[in-house]
Structures are given as C-alpha cells and as structure tokens.
Simulated assay, not measured.
Amino acid sequence: MSRPVVGIIGNVHLLNDQYPVHAGGSMNSAAVASVSDCTPLLIPADPALCRVEDLLDCCDGFVLTGGRPNVHPEEYGEAPTEAHGAFDRARDAIVLPLVRACVERGQPFLGICRGFQEVNVAMGGTLYPEIRELPGRTNHRMPPDGTLEEKFALRHEVTLTEGGPFHQVFGSPKVMTNTLHGQGIKAPGARIVIDGHAPDGTPEAIYVRDAPGFTLSVQWHPEWNAKNDPVSRPLFCAFGAAVRDWAKDKRPYPLRQAG
C-alpha cells in the first residue's frame, strides 16, 4: 500500500547565484519520510504553476516550511518597511488560501517558522517585523556564525498550556527548542489559539480553534534532527498519523499521538 503524500511548500532560490529554482530543505523531506512515514512532494509555491484546488486533491497533508522571505505586510493591512525584509508574493498567493481551505476541509497541515506566521496571517492576524526590537524581548534570530549544529542548537524553553494539544503531543508542559526567526505574532488571527510561549512572551505554538483537522504550527524548526529529538519526533509522528487518517477517507479524525 502506498504511503500518503505530504506537500512540502518550496521556496524560490538561485542555484549558483544565477539559476532560479524551487527549493526545499532536505531535512523537511527526511522528517516527512522517516518520522511521519509519508511521501514528501516538493510544491513550487507559485500560482502561475499550480492551483490550490489541485494541491488539495493530490496531497493528503502539507508542511508549511520556513523561508528567508517574509509574508508581505499588505496581507495583514500594513505598509512594508525595511525592517520587514524580503518577500515572496507568489508564495503568499498560494499558501494563505491553502491554509484557509485546509482549515475548512479538515485537511492536515504542520506550520513551521514562516509557515507558523502564514497560518496566523491567513486567519486574519498580524506580525511584528522585528521582535528583538520590542521591549523585554530577546533575539530569536539564527546565530550568524557557527556550524549547522550550533545554529540549530536548543536555545530556550517553550511553556505550553496544561492539557492543551501540544501538551498532549509532547507529554510535557515545557519543552526545549531551537530558535531561528526575526518576526513573530503581533495580534493573533480569528480562532488562532496561542498554546505556547518563549520565556520573553513570544508566541511559539499555535493551533486553529474548532478546526476539524490537524493545524498545529510552531515558530521553531522541528525538522532539525527530527528522528532523534524528543520534541520534534512526536510532533512529526502526530502529524503523520493525522495525514494517514485523512488519506483513508478524506475526513479528519481527533488528534492522536503516534508511537
């Protein structure tokens, strides 16, 4: 029996600083294949190349990946500034309506970093362009130097809601995570539940209230060392279980933790 298909949102990239490609981090594919036990399929996030309705038909679930460009602030009613950084309007045009469609259908998705922010914006929320400039906040950005192991090292604790869905998945109300982001949630969108915070109050874990399917999204990068990390592994296992449930008869099931 074939494994269900997880669409992994790709990012635009220049190969050798010249050749335009759609790229996806290999650790995302590895996490989906080896931990979620699904077939990873890279999606070129451009409405000139694919349609949301076609993606919903050919994929059983989605990983909304991180990426260097940010969601354009016009998507949440604000003007762009230098602090907002680079943008990818093509990805905005695919992922934001995809999130809303998945919420309505109950089709599972897992949001990661930019994907976490996309979920909030898709549901009507807003973002801070640079959270390290806010009073009392720390620097959550990727360390500029060091190996990949050092960049993705666990850097802070996330406190989760007692008895909430993340607590259920992780089996603990506190987990240690990496942190590699500049932006963060300003105002949560309609039905967005902030279920976990960093020590400085930055939202780190969200889900969509009353959504019939899996909508867990995190601000950190669980794809790093997903097979061995005690936080990443149960998250990708739970996502994989939700995708397999959807693939059986195209309807959502209650959240459950996979072994």
Rank of each mutant, 00 (worst) to 15 (best):
Q107W: 10
N70D: 08
K186C: 10
P188N: 10
A153E: 04
P97W: 02
F236V: 06
C113K: 01
C50W: 11
G201H: 04
P20D: 08
R91A: 01
V103Q: 02
R233Q: 09
H181R: 00
L56N: 00
E82S: 14
V5K: 08
R233V: 02
R137D: 04
L134R: 09
T215K: 05
I43W: 11
N178R: 10
A241H: 05
D210P: 09
K227H: 12
G213V: 00
G66R: 04
S36M: 11
M27Y: 15
S36G: 12
S172Q: 10
G136A: 09
P144T: 02
L42I: 14
P20N: 09
V119A: 06
E75W: 01
V52Y: 14
K174W: 07
V52I: 15
F62P: 01
P47Q: 12
A226L: 07
K227N: 12
L14K: 14
L15P: 07
A90K: 11
F62K: 02
Q183F: 01
T138A: 15
R114A: 07
L14W: 11
H84T: 07
P144C: 01
L41N: 03
L180W: 09
V208E: 10
E150H: 03
E130P: 07
K250G: 13
T177Y: 02
L96Y: 03
P143T: 06
T215G: 07
V103M: 03
V95I: 15
I43G: 08
S29Y: 03
L148E: 15
A187L: 08
H13E: 03
A86W: 10
G10K: 00
Q257K: 15
M27D: 15
I94Y: 02
H13N: 03
E150I: 01
R114G: 06
T177I: 05
P212L: 04
G7P: 13
H72I: 02
G184L: 02
N11E: 08
D57R: 15
G184Q: 00
T138N: 12
K250N: 12
L96E: 03
P69Y: 01
L96W: 05
Q18K: 14
V218L: 05
S26G: 11
L154F: 06
T126A: 15
H156G: 04
P135L: 09
G146A: 07
P129V: 10
L64P: 09
D60Y: 00
A23L: 15
C113R: 00
H197L: 09
N70M: 04
D17Q: 14
P20L: 05
L14G: 08
S2W: 12
E150K: 01
C59V: 04
H156K: 03
D60Q: 00
Q183H: 02
V12Q: 15
V95S: 13
S34F: 13
A258H: 08
P40C: 11
C102P: 10
R233L: 04
P47G: 13
T147L: 07
N228W: 00
P144F: 00
T65H: 02
V218G: 02
V158C: 01
L49E: 13
T202W: 06
